[in-house]
Design a binder for these strands. Structure first.
Lengths: 122, 122, 122, 122
DNA sequence: GTGGTCTAGACCACC
DNA sequence: GTGGTCTAGACCACA
């Protein structure tokens, strides 16, 4: 797991969203134990408190839970995770349409654009 | 023009991005005079310094220019504006694909999702 | 505002629940500005970070909100606050019944006990 | 006997309070032999040390006593147990009034609330 | 002056 | 070894 941070957003949010995507994308399986706070801090070269703050976010979202003295685990409720994944996807799509609309594309034009873009642009 | 701000991002960035979208979307036409800094500040209920900072952003991007003692104007170079618009659109689309990929969608799946989403979700 | 802490629970939780009760009980009015993080920290003789953590709790509950660079304010939505108050009361009552039941009082007996207790015991 | 723990409080305290309520509520009769530490540990799926720590609590309160080589027994002094029960009840009631007061209910209002709540809420 | 972030480092309870 | 809490102190962006 490699951590590269930009200076635009708080590090703890970058960590939490990185882990969030790893959970919803299945790289961390439901019920799986996460690396310890200290390990993550070491890997990310940040202070353990920063990791702690990141994980608190995910815990509030119900994506992970804590067993005291034992570690932190991905929620074993696959449904919660699926819901989170869908929520994220929906959010991304809605944001795309909204932003395209702001710069003068109707939803239809935005769809045209991205279908065209996806085919060649990348 | 109504201004609603969230507390997540700096206000000056919210103002500049709002004006930017109004320029590229044609709500402000090429060569058109912008409202004065004071007027904008009044409308947005913020400090004129904040508006000034926002406009500096746009000026750096070449979207507006200043005539001393006369005011600020939208660039009359329609091409500059079109380029800005395309750059924005491309950026949005790329970001969408990247974020979908992070949560486990291939580019193809992301396209499927958004075509489906655009058709019914909104 | 005087702060006295016990060693049983984390200080930040004691601070947040103290402020929570002051909000729901109306000592802090809807929309009212809270003392700054630094002021509270000074008054409670704790580190500003600790106060910050306490206030984050309340913000997550929707009881307060933040205006960046301006301060933190009690939610102006009186309804949110009322709901929080009712939730707290309900929680307290439910806990009472549950605990009494655990030590062998039926709900009816618990009611008898507390009506009797309330009349003389205090 | 089923044990379900939360991660908020130390497990040994959760065990001791569970056993305490079973004693004062009569599920364990005065003089009755308790299950062995090992049995309890097995049932609760915790380390025997943890059970031991829980039982020490109860022994300090005089609710149980140890016969070396023979096991641990509920105190045969019914009075001790009754006193413990009353102390618990009184404590619960006082806590209820105090907490309700904190969120803006006078003792009278709290009584009204709980009589009403007990009648319908559950 | 306001909140927000982050670090270094310490200490604790628990198992 | 695990997570949790707290401090002291620094630095930053914003308005």
């Amino acid at each position: 797991m490699d951590f590269v941070f930009d200076n635009e957003r708080p590090i703890y949010l970058q960590i939490s969203s990185l882990l969030r995507t790893q959970i919803v994308s299945g790289k961390f399986q439901p019920g799986e134990k996460l690396p310890s706070v200290r390990e993550l801090a070491l890997a990310a070269k940040v202070n353990p408190n920063t990791v702690q703050k990141a994980l608190t976010e995910l815990e509030n979202e119900g994506l992970i839970y804590t067993e005291r003295t034992n570690g932190k685990f991905v929620s074993s409720d696959a449904n919660t995770i699926l819901i989170a994944k869908n929520a994220l996807a929906k959010e991304k799509a809605a944001k795309f349409f909204e932003e395209m609309q702001n710069i003068g594309y109707s939803d239809t034009e935005a769809l045209n654009y991205i279908n065209h873009f996806g085919g060649e642009g990348k």
